[in-house]
């Protein structure tokens, strides 16, 4: 199953460029409101995929295009994920996305970026001070996050308010988890929609 998914993704990625050159770029509107539903897991990319769906979260964000063709986009998002086993997490992420159009209204997406994860603990923690054990709550640690993503979406431009639904899969690497695991892998499935409001047309 996992091998088939990887094969599909490679094939699909390889087809981006050729298709992109054949398709006209539709109009685009900056600063949509992006709402996302996330499914996260502490796991290697394309491994143990089922465990993602035990840990759900929500997010909000926006984006702005880098060029006139609107196929280079800068995304900004903040999202929260509930993970009972490993602890919840709050993420602040910006990613540069290459979004070639596969044929109206579909687009593919490859992206990478940088972010920050504030990790919480799954249970109460304790610290000893002056010989006494004190409760230290569930707050954990802030870590540098490096997300890499692949996605697919629909961009059906309209003069009025319009929405652009999408799905993507992102391996995220966290730096400095602890002394023994310097780089921790996570994976995130993301479903979402970008709503482009009329008043923001420039």
């Amino acid at each position: 199953m996992e091998k088939r998914i990887i094969f599909f993704l490679i094939l699909w990625t390889a087809s981006f460029k050729a298709v992109a050159q054949e398709s006209p770029t539709p109009d685009y509107r900056n600063f949509p409101v992006t709402i996302t539903l996330q499914f996260q897991s502490f796991s290697l990319p394309f491994k143990n995929l089922g465990s993602n769906f035990k840990n759900m979260g929500i997010g909000i964000g926006t984006e702005v295009s880098h060029n006139g063709d609107h196929d280079w986009i800068q995304e900004f998002s903040i999202f929260w994920i509930r993970n009972k086993a490993m602890g919840n997490g709050l993420y602040l992420v910006t990613q540069t996305a290459w979004r070639p159009y596969l044929g109206n209204p579909f687009f593919g997406e490859l992206k990478a970026g940088v972010g920050y994860k504030l990790a919480f603990r799954p249970s109460e923690s304790f610290i000893q001070k002056e010989g006494k054990w004190l409760a230290a709550g569930k707050k954990g640690k802030g870590m540098l996050a490096i997300p890499i993503g692949i996605g697919l979406g629909i961009h059906d431009y309209s003069e009025s308010v319009y929405s652009s639904p999408f799905i993507n899969y992102q391996p995220v690497f966290l730096k400095g988890f602890n002394q023994d695991i310097p780089l921790v892998p996570e994976t995130i499935f993301q479903l979402g929609t970008r709503t482009h409001f009329n008043k923001l047309i420039k």
Partner: peptide, 13 residues
């Protein structure tokens, strides 16, 4: 049992 998940001296059950 307890562990120092983030290697910062704070322990979790």
């Amino acid at each position: 049992g307890y562990w120092d998940r983030y290697s910062n001296g704070i322990l979790e059950n």
